[in-house]
């Protein structure tokens, strides 16, 4: 019995190790020119890496978790390779995060025309024009806050080398609403900057000082929007945090 448990444990550990190794093997992080391919419906976005084409996602609308990249700029792609059927000619990536690189790259201009052989294998949640009366994706309603009030943490994530952008109002509003509901006494903000190890072994590090910039900016935004009564504690750690896209972040704690 005891031996069986040990064996089972070893097997599970081995499977977990294999799965982790496999995930690490499948994990891709690369910088390249994005490619947009038109289709009969919405365009899809691709990127090439070491001779292979990867499918990143499609154009939908502002509600989408995937925001397409930009021609004229390179894109940092982070995600896991799948063995799912190709879409628009590219291998789909799981949990893909794309980050438009700030510098201009005028040579990144590939716009491929629609071809009959490239059709989306699913219906786009948003056509390339008017919606069907709702945004492509919906968001859960914030849960109602009941006493006793507790500290709550929020996280804002950023594009590589990025500061506040169009994706952040939803998170900032959530912070404001929670702070107002619990009559927050303090807001603690800590900023970070990230370092991504690319699949070719190179390290891509966000610019120095960004941790401070992000943290101070968030405090200014919240205060500028009228959340002035809590005390703000703003700190940062400018030591680059090595890891995935989640390292490019600030953490906000709203305390009663």
């Amino acid at each position: 019995m005891e031996r069986a448990v040990v064996l089972r444990g070893l097997l599970l550990a081995s499977l977990a190790l294999h799965s982790a190794a496999s995930a690490a093997e499948d994990h891709l992080a690369f910088v390249s020119c994005p490619i947009v391919r038109d289709t009969k419906t919405v365009p899809c976005w691709l990127a090439e890496h070491e001779g292979e084409t990867y499918y990143l996602g499609i154009q939908t609308d502002v509600s989408a978790p995937f925001s397409p990249p930009s021609l004229g700029h390179k894109v940092l792609v982070e995600g896991e390779k799948t063995d799912e059927p190709r879409i628009c000619g590219g291998i789909p990536l799981r949990n893909v995060i794309v980050s438009v690189m700030p510098e201009r790259a005028d040579y990144c201009q590939t716009l491929l025309m629609a071809e009959d052989r490239y059709t989306l294998p699913f219906e786009s949640p948003r056509p390339p024009g008017p919606s069907r009366g709702r945004l492509a994706f919906s968001f859960p309603e914030p849960e109602k806050v009941m006493p006793p009030y507790k500290s709550r943490s929020f996280q804002l994530r950023y594009d590589f080398d990025g500061t506040v952008g169009f994706r952040h109002p939803r998170s900032l509003v959530a912070v404001m609403e929670y702070a107002s509901q619990i009559n927050a006494r303090s807001i603690v903000i800590k900023g970070y900057r990230g370092r991504t190890i690319l699949s070719n072994g190179e390290a891509l590090t966000e610019r120095e000082g960004l941790a401070e910039l992000r943290a101070k900016e968030a405090a200014n935004l919240l205060q500028g929007a009228g959340l002035t009564s809590p005390e703000y504690v703003v700190t940062w750690d400018d030591e680059p945090q090595t890891g995935d896209a989640s390292q490019r972040r600030i953490e906000i704690s709203v305390d009663p």
Binding site: V36, P43, V62, P68, P69, S70, L71, G129, G165
Partner: peptide, 16 residues
């Protein structure tokens, strides 16, 4: 417009 999650370029219409 092209910086708010639609991509650049985006295939859309006047009403976008």
């Amino acid at each position: 417009l092209n910086t708010v999650g639609l991509g650049n370029p985006t295939k859309r219409t006047c009403a976008t």
